[in-house]
């Protein structure tokens, strides 16, 4: 128990030390804030200097390009449905790249995450190895693998799919192994006592516990992968990004195509975002019960 008989001396001491602590904290906070502001300002100046056009000049022209595109799209509004239909196959390809890579990445991610979770791992000694593998897969940006694979395999959806899948393995593997850590070991032990092999223990004992979380994370990843697959298309891996680059390089007069692609991409992302948000909410809050 605290000593309640302490005299006023003690209270003064406490007050003094409290004031000092507060002051110290405030000074630290102030220094950090000043440092942050200085860093932002210096960084902005450096970036501004290294840029082709300066911020001051550019800011007035931000809406020039969208206005041009929009203007032309409105002018040729009659062609919009046709254009939307024309680029639909590319959109499907982009979606397929995202979906296939999410699926493949999730499957490999599940295996890797189980191998890298303490208590579940098949070879506990190799846990650090599998973790490092996931770290490295996560660290390599998709574009690197995609560009290298385009050189070897030629253009098309496959390099993009492999690139995104590899990144997904690392990203999902980490999230999955965090989920695995919270899984109860009792079913696993029960299965082990009746002689189940490691794959059986995992499929029957762990996956049912963590399945909904897996699906929730995979849906989130699918959303991210659609964006990634559009970007990779832009550097030559097929899909809607590739069409977008072509439409843009045609320049003025073909902006109606660019506008159609913008619309398709926007609608898809918003739709998938809403859908996956809805399903993830159901999965985590258990609306099924």
């Amino acid at each position: 128990m605290a000593d309640l008989t302490a005299g006023p001396d003690r209270i003064d001491e406490i007050r003094a030390s409290y004031t000092m602590l507060t002051r110290k904290k405030r000074i630290y906070g102030g220094i950090l804030l000043a440092l942050f502001v200085a860093l932002m300002a210096a960084g902005f100046r450096t970036a501004d200097m290294r840029n082709a056009g300066s911020f001051g000049d550019g800011i007035t022209h931000v809406f020039d390009y969208p206005a041009e595109v929009l203007g032309e799209a409105v002018e040729k509004a009659a062609q919009l449905p046709g254009n939307l239909l024309r680029f639909l196959p590319s959109l499907v390809e982009t979606l397929n790249i995202a979906a296939a890579s999410t699926l493949l990445g999730a499957i490999a991610g599940i295996v890797l995450s189980l191998l890298a979770t303490r208590g579940l791992a098949r070879w506990p000694a190799l846990i650090p190895l599998f973790r490092r593998v996931m770290d490295i897969l996560r660290a390599i940006p998709e574009i690197v693998i995609a560009l290298v694979l385009i050189f070897i395999l030629g253009g098309g959806p496959v390099p993009a799919m492999i690139a995104i899948a590899l990144h997904t393995v690392g990203a999902l593997g980490k999230l999955f192994s965090e989920v695995n850590e919270n899984a109860s070991l009792k079913p696993v032990e029960g299965l082990q006592s009746v002689g189940a092999t490691w794959p059986q223990r995992m499929i029957l004992g762990v996956i049912p516990q963590v399945g909904p979380n897996y699906v929730s994370y995979a849906l989130l990843r699918f959303e991210i992968n659609i964006r990634a697959s559009a970007i990779l298309g832009f550097v030559g891996a097929g899909g809607i990004g590739y069409d977008l680059r072509n439409a843009m390089s045609w320049g003025q007069g073909r902006y109606d195509e660019a506008a159609a692609i913008f619309v398709l991409l926007f609608l898809t992302i918003v739709l998938v975002d809403q859908l996956s948000g809805y399903f993830r909410d159901r999965l985590t809050h258990g609306a099924r019960a």
Partner: peptide, 11 residues
């Protein structure tokens, strides 16, 4: 869109 306005570069 931003590359059109600001040109290539880190900004």
């Amino acid at each position: 869109v931003l590359a059109r306005a600001f040109g290539p570069g880190p900004l």
